[in-house]
Simulated scan of single mutants.
Amino acid sequence: MTNKLRVGLLSTAALDVPGSMRVYAELLSQALAAHAPDIEAHLIELAPAQPRGGLSQRFEMLALPLRARRCRSENIDLWHILDGSRAYLAEGLRGAPVVITAHDIIPVLQQRGRFPGAPTVGRAARWLWRRNGRAMRMAALLICDSECTRRDVNDAFGRAGMARVVPLPVRPGLVANGGGELTAREPGLILHLGNNGFYKNRAQVLRIFAALDRSLARRLVMIGPAPAPALRELASALGIEAWVQWVEDAEDVQVANWYHRASLLVFPSLYEGYGWPVLEAMTFGLPVVCSNAGSLPEVAGDVAPCLAPDDLAGYVREIEWLLRDPAVAQARSEAGRRWAEGFGLERFARDMSAAYRAACDGVKR
Rank of each mutant, 00 (worst) to 15 (best):
S11N: 07
A33R: 04
A36L: 02
A36I: 04
D38M: 05
H42M: 06
A47H: 05
P48T: 11
A49Q: 11
F59V: 14
L62F: 09
L64R: 15
P65Y: 04
A68L: 04
C71I: 02
G84A: 11
S85A: 14
L93Y: 03
R94V: 09
P97R: 02
Q110K: 11
R112S: 13
F115E: 10
P119W: 04
R123W: 12
R131W: 08
I143C: 11
D152H: 11
N154M: 11
N154W: 05
A156L: 15
R159G: 03
A160V: 12
P167V: 11
V170E: 07
L174P: 07
G178H: 03
G180D: 06
L182A: 14
T183H: 02
G194L: 02
F198Y: 15
Y199L: 06
Y199M: 01
R202S: 07
V205A: 08
P225W: 05
P227G: 11
S236G: 10
L238Q: 08
W243E: 13
V266W: 04
Y274Q: 01
V278F: 00
T283S: 15
A293V: 05
P305Y: 04
I319W: 03
R324S: 13
V328K: 11
V328G: 05
V328L: 12
A335V: 06
W339Y: 14
F343A: 08
E346A: 15
S353L: 02
S353D: 03
S353V: 00
K364I: 14
R365L: 09
